[in-house]
Design a protein around this nucleic acid. Structure first.
Lengths: 142, 142
DNA sequence: ATAATGTAGACTTCGTGACTCCACAATATG
DNA sequence: CATATTGTGGAGTCACGAAGTCTACATTAT
């Protein structure tokens, strides 16, 4: 029930790329600016490329660009590119139990939570995040 | 971002106990009826006892009972008894990055999701789950 | 005294998140 | 064309935590 570092890295990279209208961002630059291990970032970017969120160019002067406008990329896209389909419970894994207890009192709740989560993710675009960007004060460091 | 088996076990055990107004449910019974490994259930129950959700009695005829009415126990209580404080992002682990980027465009989103999740969990009591209990059809098994 | 229960906690296993490494492919530029 | 610069693909490593096991022990009803 936690946001993984990988997802965080992906979001950070994409918001970084959406920040200014530059043609290309090299892995090196993103890695350095966002403090993401270069080799790990490579893996993440590959997934974003494969899922069609960014375009890549190899060779000198190469790098990555967003394939769509920041307002056309929402967090759900990013989430699913990195983590796969959003699913809070995996009833398939518990088939035996689920079949025995045809009435599962929990499912509706997890479903409701999942739906509300998906909605928020879908409603939040890169652009929103860039605009919303406000100073966060860390007074609850502990 | 998934419900753990442990949490599922806890919820199932508690709904089972809230089902009928019986004085005591032995671990053996719960384990058997809900198909939860006995030894593992033991660990889970200890946490629920420690957190004050159930009361235990040792010796023959012993077992567990809910400490409160089903309508007084909500899912947030259960969640936190098992998983600890609800927190989608651990900014403390990423202190360095957070300090460098005082403006974190993602935080507000995760926060919104977390808040809505907490609200739903809080609003859902054991009683709700027992009432809501409806037959679930598994047509999306895959 | 004994059997039936829960308690405490060490130990094991396995999967996965978070990396690292290296060989390789594409391509801009001199 | 040679070379340097960039991304690609995939194997390998490490640590941690979820899930589960085991064993010794404490409590208490009969």
């Amino acid at each position: 029930m936690q946001v993984t570092k990988t997802l965080d890295y992906a979001v950070r990279s994409l918001t970084y790329m959406g920040n200014q209208p530059v043609e290309r961002y090299s892995m090196k630059e993103i890695s350095h600016e966002q403090h993401i291990p270069l080799n790990y970032l490579a893996k993440i970017m590959r997934r974003l490329v494969k899922k069609g969120l960014v375009r890549s160019t190899v060779g000198p002067g190469g790098g990555y660009t967003l394939r769509k406008l920041p307002k056309e990329i929402n967090l759900r896209d990013i989430y699913e590119a990195i983590e796969g389909e959003i699913r809070m419970v995996d009833c398939m894994d518990r088939e035996t139990v689920c079949l025995l207890h045809k009435t599962c009192p929990q499912l509706p709740v997890w479903d409701r939570i999942q739906l509300s989560m998906v909605k928020i993710l879908e409603d939040t675009t890169l652009e929103d995040m860039l605009k919303e960007r406000k100073t966060v004060i860390f007074n609850q460091v502990n």
